[in-house]
Design a protein around this nucleic acid. Structure first.
Lengths: 234, 234
DNA sequence: TGCATTTTTCTTGTCGACAAGAAATATTTT
DNA sequence: AAAATATTTCTTGTCGACAAGAAAAATGCA
């Protein structure tokens, strides 16, 4: 009979460790399981993931490249803070990317893209029913990313992905005050956007993307103001 | 008298090695001193820079994060190829960023920004006189980046920087067929852009940015076609 | 000779150990 | 007791060595 050690030393494929650590830490940062400003200790991570500091460090370098962590030379590395003072620059970029990606999707999409988009649209509608915020944020991001992919411009898709990631953190900040009525409206707007893309109506797609983006922005700003009034520390 | 070794073992500040390697390799890639597709050997680089593979690797991970090199797992790492088939998506993104950054600069600039922009404008005019293409490309990029900085949206600035970097590589491909008449026109257009920014005329700045971007695109496309006719391998 | 298989080589991926830098703590000096 | 200085501690940065994986070369076999 094979003896099973109580410490799981998992056999990993060479090279997979970095991706594992990167993916997990990235999710934990974006879901605010790791609070902004909290320290990221290489030695602790090495113990936690049962590997040496080298692959841990590589994952951290990648995360730093995306701005998710910050490295203070010779001292420590921290989870990046969310810059709430410059939220407007974030919103500017987000709305423009909503417009551009939706417009390009109307222009460049192929039939297979619409299948994928509709699939995610259905998933989003389902998560709205369950009222699970984490799923809603994730599926909504995936839905809009699928539209961006259909637009076939990797430069825009890349920036959009980063903006949606940052949005995961921002939305999570407002978890409690999340207004439960607006998701249904978003489902309808998503449907309109899909229709415009399918009809290849570039200007309408652009316009709907703009409205949709601006409504999300407005919603977040309202939550922001309300939280400030409630004196919630950010 | 102090004896000087013929091997320069330079005393470096701890942590500076990565930045050194990163900066040099980045420049060499963007100036096409390292040809797209050519191998990047960690051991060779370690010997060249007189340091161990660890900091070399960290620099390479960062370059990979920006898409400048590609890593084939367990095998080799290469300088990324320039995707000439999808040039149009590149141009789409570039023109939009020209527009957006110029518009935002008109909206958000402060007096100090204009000083910096004008300084680079002067430098650009000077490099046009010398007809040194490498300087022209670099200073032109710096000029437009300064405008982007004045727009104060780091998301746009980041994407724009990457696009201008990629442009360094693309322009260098066409070095020989570079048309010597258009730089002077660009100097004049730069002056118009500065004036629009100073007047805070958002729509005009946007429009001029668009025209300027499209003219660069047109120029590159013309060179592209001419090179294809001449049967130059790309 | 032509093809499959084994061996070698070459490059990357991972490790454990040590050094350097900065902050925190302890010590000395006035 | 307060300030300056020395020491310790803690985390990151770098190193040299070795292992793993894949391609290339060499070998064996029909």
């Amino acid at each position: 009979m094979v003896e099973k050690s109580n410490i799981d030393v998992v056999e990993r494929r060479r090279g997979s460790g970095v991706k594992l650590v990167y993916d997990i830490l990235r999710d934990e940062i974006l879901d605010l399981k790791l609070a902004p400003g909290s320290p990221v200790d290489e030695v602790l991570l090495a113990e936690r993931f049962q590997m040496s500091r080298t692959p841990i460090r590589e994952a951290l370098v990648r995360l730093a490249g995306e701005g998710l962590i910050e490295t203070l030379p010779n001292r420590s590395t921290l989870v990046s803070n969310i810059d709430l003072l410059n939220l407007n620059t974030y919103f500017d970029a987000l709305v423009l990317m909503y417009r551009v990606t939706t417009r390009l999707a109307a222009q460049n999409h192929k039939p297979a893209d619409l299948v994928a988009i509709r699939e995610l649209h259905g998933q989003y509608a389902a998560t709205v029913e369950t009222r699970d915020l984490r799923d809603m944020i994730a599926v909504n991001a995936a839905f809009h990313l699928a539209i961006a992919e259909a637009g076939r411009n990797p430069y825009f898709t890349g920036l959009f992905r980063r903006l949606l990631d940052e949005g995961r953190r921002i939305l999570r900040l407002y978890y409690n005050s999340y207004d439960e009525q607006f998701p249904q409206r978003f489902v309808d707007e998503h449907a309109e956007i899909i229709a415009a893309i399918e009809r290849r109506d570039l200007d309408l797609a652009d316009h709907l993307g703009k409205i949709h983006g601006e409504q999300i922005v407005e919603q977040v700003q309202r939550m922001f103001v309300r939280n400030q009034k409630l004196d919630i520390k950010l």
